[in-house]
Design a protein around this nucleic acid. Structure first.
Lengths: 188, 188
DNA sequence: GTCTATACGGAGATAGAC
DNA sequence: GTCTATCTCCGTATAGAC
């Protein structure tokens, strides 16, 4: 657990994270990751013994990042409505990557869903992070009864946009959708 | 192009269609398809020389089926509102498969999007079939100005539900979403 | 048209020298 | 900790007998 090893480990997870997003999990090989992390395949196996282990590490890393991001939003935005708007604005901020590769969480989870395995359960926690946070915002907004349904509906719309985005690669589609989602939020 | 060959060809496309849906395109091998179609690998290559060719055939087959299905709905339902409701009801009718594998169109297209290739263009036509039909319904409903935006928004919600469905494998989530989408339609 | 045999490359994974 | 060499399996694809 020296400092050199930790740095390499981080480099591997970084590289794997990016490649899983851009190429997909199934199409990303050990060689791809090793090459991107600038390590030999042999040395690579010193850090991770299976593709499963890397995936687990990537998911855990993303989970931490998302949780941290949402915690920051909870601090920086004072009202639940502003926080929800911040969530929607993600679609505009990550626009160029969204148009190419879709949502990192959605695309990964959908890929794993087709291989009925324990990996799917791991990936689901990523959605749970957002769902829980969104639900809390809707509760604070006064929608105590249907907070979870509203949270899911917002997730649904976000995922729908993220899927259609790479299909049409059209920025105008994202703009139009964000407008409609904002209108839905305002009407609540 | 004898009758025997045509039957085999159809069997292959059938098998490939199912496997692409349930396992995903990337994880489905020639052997998988040959086995499901009950053909030897050797004979298999007599009909399709590459995975690309099979994919093209599968997409074309789906396109025809969807176009036919939508044409039937245009006949069986007399008002655009009823036709749109029929579209939403797909989420309930295909419930059990949706909960396991998501939407055939959405999952395939997302997978292909990560391999920037011509295959992506082929898959996009599947969305175009629905988008065009939906747009027509909204126009008939009187929304001439924003028909395309509304069509896309309905597609977005459908795809969002289809992605979240296998993540949580919860029928109640689909029910709740259908209710909310129906309410959105009614308000138009 | 249908099969068997086989070539070839890439992927995951390990052993062992340094 | 890092590397090279190597093993095995699987996937795509072809040749050629029947």
């Amino acid at each position: 657990m020296g400092s050199k090893g930790d740095a390499n480990r981080r480099r591997i997870v970084d590289a794997a994270d990016q490649l899983f997003y851009r190429q997909g999990y199934n199409r990303t090989s050990f060689s791809d990751i090793a090459q991107a992390a600038e390590l030999s395949r042999g040395n690579f196996y010193y850090y991770f013994k299976s593709k499963d282990e890397i995936l687990e590490a990537v998911i855990e890393r993303r989970r931490e990042q998302y949780a941290e991001m949402l915690a920051e939003w909870s601090e920086s935005e004072s009202t639940p409505r502003e926080r929800l708007r911040h969530f929607v604005r993600m679609l505009l901020d990550g626009r160029s990557e969204l148009l190419r590769y879709g949502c990192p969480t959605g695309s990964l989870t959908l890929e794993l869903a087709k291989i009925q395995s324990e990996q799917q359960d791991h990936a689901r926690v990523l959605f749970e992070v957002f769902r829980t946070w969104l639900r809390q915002q809707f509760i604070t907004l006064g929608h105590t009864q249907d907070a979870d349904e509203l949270a899911c509906h917002l997730l649904v719309m976000g995922q729908g946009v993220s899927l259609l985005a790479p299909v049409y690669a059209d920025p105008a589609l994202i703009d139009s959708e964000v407008t409609q989602i904002d209108a839905w939020l305002d009407a609540l």
